[in-house]
């Protein structure tokens, strides 16, 4: 995968990163959307769909309430999809599922930096507030509006930086460790494909505010499982 592909990935990272908080919050930033979208733009939508499936539930229970900043699952998905497709181009014959799993496993911890960059953008926005207060003293309303829109740039930079860290550090890790980790991942791919969503389900059950959540979940799980077994 060449620089052009990573540039395309970076464009998706910025647009979807803005959607997380700044504009327009129509949820193209969710892993289940941005994964296939990135994959489609990079020529392999199935890889993106696979990464989206793995990541979607993991932090879904972490709500962006008030000043809380959840882990950046958007950039983890975009970065992991770009890495999986990039690796696929270099390692022909490798299992696509194993590539998606390995890329996601590597990208996930790196996504932590997304929270730091996001916090940085929000701190940076406080300077816009100061600038607005100065403009207020001069009755320069247009300057206040421009200050507000400048915040978009801060969030865009934070997204781009997160994507850069995930893809940069992720590529280094994968190039050195893929020969060892890929066969291990491929061998356990079917199980790992279940591990991600099930841990996500557990995290949601732990945080969702529903009476008798475990009872409802168990009843549904057992009935669906028995039905699948009987059919």
């Amino acid at each position: 995968m060449g620089a052009g592909h990573y540039l395309l990935g970076a464009s998706v990272a910025v647009i979807s990163g803005l959607d997380r908080t700044a504009f327009p919050q129509i949820m193209i930033s969710r892993p289940i959307v941005v994964g296939p979208l990135t994959g489609w733009l990079l020529g392999n939508p199935s890889a993106g769909l696979q990464v989206g499936l793995l990541v979607e539930l993991l932090w879904l229970g972490r709500l962006p309430v008030g000043a809380a900043i959840p882990p950046d699952d958007t950039q983890v998905t975009v970065g992991a999809t770009a890495l999986a497709i990039g690796m696929g181009g270099e390692m022909s014959g490798a299992s696509p599922l194993a590539l998606s799993l390995l890329a996601t496993l590597v990208a996930m911890p790196l996504g932590k930096v997304g929270q730091l960059f996001d916090r940085g953008a929000r701190n940076w926005n406080e300077k816009l507030l100061q600038r607005s207060e100065e403009a207020l003293a001069e009755n320069d309303w247009q300057a206040i509006e421009r200050s507000h829109l400048a915040g978009l740039g801060h969030f865009a930079l934070a997204s781009l930086a997160t994507f850069g860290v995930i893809v940069g550090a992720g590529s280094l890790v994968l190039h050195s460790l893929a020969p060892i980790l890929l066969p291990l991942t491929a061998k356990s791919a079917n199980w790992l494909r279940v591990v991600f969503p099930l841990v996500g389900v557990a995290a949601i059950l732990a945080t969702i505010n529903v009476r008798r959540a475990l009872t409802l979940f168990s009843a549904s799980f057992v009935s669906a499982f028995l039905l699948l077994w009987l059919l």
Binding site: L216, F217, S218, S220, A224, F225
Partner: peptide
């Protein structure tokens, strides 16, 4: 959501 999560988890495990 909780009910659907039960069905979804069962489906994934069954496939695996």
């Amino acid at each position: 959501t909780v009910i659907l999560l039960g069905g979804f988890s069962a489906y994934l495990v069954f496939l695996c």
